[in-house]
Computed example of a mutant assay.
Amino acid sequence: MIRLSLGSIFSLFVIFLAAPHADEQPSRIVSLGGSVTEIVYALGEGDRLVARDTTSNYPPEANDLPDVGYIRRLSAEGVLSVDPDLILAEEGAGPPEVVAQLHQAGVPMVDVVETPTVEAIREKILTVGKALGMEADAKTLADKVMQDLETALETPVSAEKRVLFVLSMQGGRIMASGQDTAADGMIELVGATNAMEGFSGYKTVTGEAVIAAAPDVILMMDRSGDHAMANDDLFAHPAIATTPAGENRAVIRMDGMRLLGFSVRTPEAAQELIAALNGLGS
């Protein structure tokens, strides 16, 4: 027969009280990925976040949270320094060895799909909602976002537009979007055509390739600081200058996360992009 002293019984009682209960929800969450952070706030749970990554810049109050670094160049020490009880991470968070260290640390980590499709938006919302213990609210939010997107897409692009998405132009070298990117997904979503074909991802392209692509419009993220480029500099590029977009000085600039996030603001982004495309040449 096992006998326990009063001291042992008291110790076990303290351990029982300190142990987390199964129905407790995470209250110290690190969000890695702007689209995930937007969903957490859209569900009204921003007060459960204790840190975010650099891409998480919306809503504005997210910027008040500690920044643990760029989503693909994280450090385990930075993420763990805020003592999280849950990590929500977009696919592609890394590097892989850091993700492995986070798993080894024993902090629950939920991977959120990062595919630029309409179906992925719903999946993201439902995944985040489940992790937060808010399945019903997440379903309601997902249904609303899908309905808003359907409404936004009821207005078609008035004429076929060939769109060249330019990610950067450092040193005059054009890095453009091919297929299988968020930019390509957004261009296709609104009914326009990606002017660049034949490769996946973002790639530095030659002037000849830009001229052959013959874009009607240049699409860029609206940036400031060292990454900004004035229209005069953009259209002074020899290759761009000879395209229909260059001849008509047709450029659309949009907030990067709203345009490329494929999250709760995608209906708003689609509506904005369609309006801008339809407004060109009108």
Rank of each mutant, 00 (worst) to 15 (best):
I2Y: 01
I2K: 10
R3W: 08
L4M: 08
S5G: 10
L6F: 11
L6D: 12
I9F: 11
S11I: 14
V14K: 01
V14H: 06
V14M: 14
F16G: 08
L17A: 12
A18L: 15
A19V: 06
H21K: 14
P26M: 02
G33C: 05
G34S: 00
T37C: 10
E38S: 06
E38F: 04
V40R: 08
E45D: 12
R48Q: 04
L49S: 11
V50W: 03
V50I: 02
A51D: 06
A51K: 01
R52V: 13
T54G: 14
T55S: 15
T55L: 05
P60K: 07
P60D: 15
Y70W: 13
Y70C: 12
I71Y: 15
L74F: 04
S75A: 08
L80P: 05
L80G: 06
L80F: 03
P84N: 03
L86W: 11
L88Q: 07
L88S: 06
A89K: 13
E91G: 05
P95Q: 05
P96L: 02
P96E: 02
A105H: 05
G106N: 04
V112W: 11
V118H: 13
I121W: 15
I121E: 15
R122W: 09
R122I: 04
L126D: 13
K130F: 05
A131F: 05
G133N: 00
G133A: 01
A136I: 03
A138Q: 11
L141M: 10
L141T: 13
L141H: 13
A142S: 14
M146Q: 15
Q147T: 13
L149G: 05
E150G: 15
T155Y: 01
A159E: 09
E160W: 01
V163A: 00
M169S: 11
M169H: 06
Q170S: 11
G171S: 07
R173H: 09
A176D: 07
S177H: 01
S177I: 04
A183L: 03
G185D: 06
I187V: 09
G191I: 02
A192F: 02
T193A: 05
E197G: 05
E197A: 14
E197C: 07
Y202E: 04
V205D: 02
G207N: 07
A209V: 00
I211P: 09
A214M: 12
D222H: 11
D222C: 08
D222W: 03
S224W: 03
G225S: 08
H227P: 04
H227T: 08
H227E: 14
A228E: 10
A230D: 02
L234H: 05
P238Q: 13
A239H: 08
T242I: 14
P244D: 09
P244S: 05
G246M: 11
G246E: 14
R249E: 15
R249D: 12
G256R: 09
G256H: 08
L259F: 03
L260C: 07
G261W: 09
S263Y: 10
V264D: 12
R265A: 10
R265T: 08
P267Q: 01
A269F: 06
A270R: 08
Q271S: 14
Q271P: 00
L273A: 05
L273Q: 03
A275Y: 02
A276E: 13
G279F: 11
L280M: 10
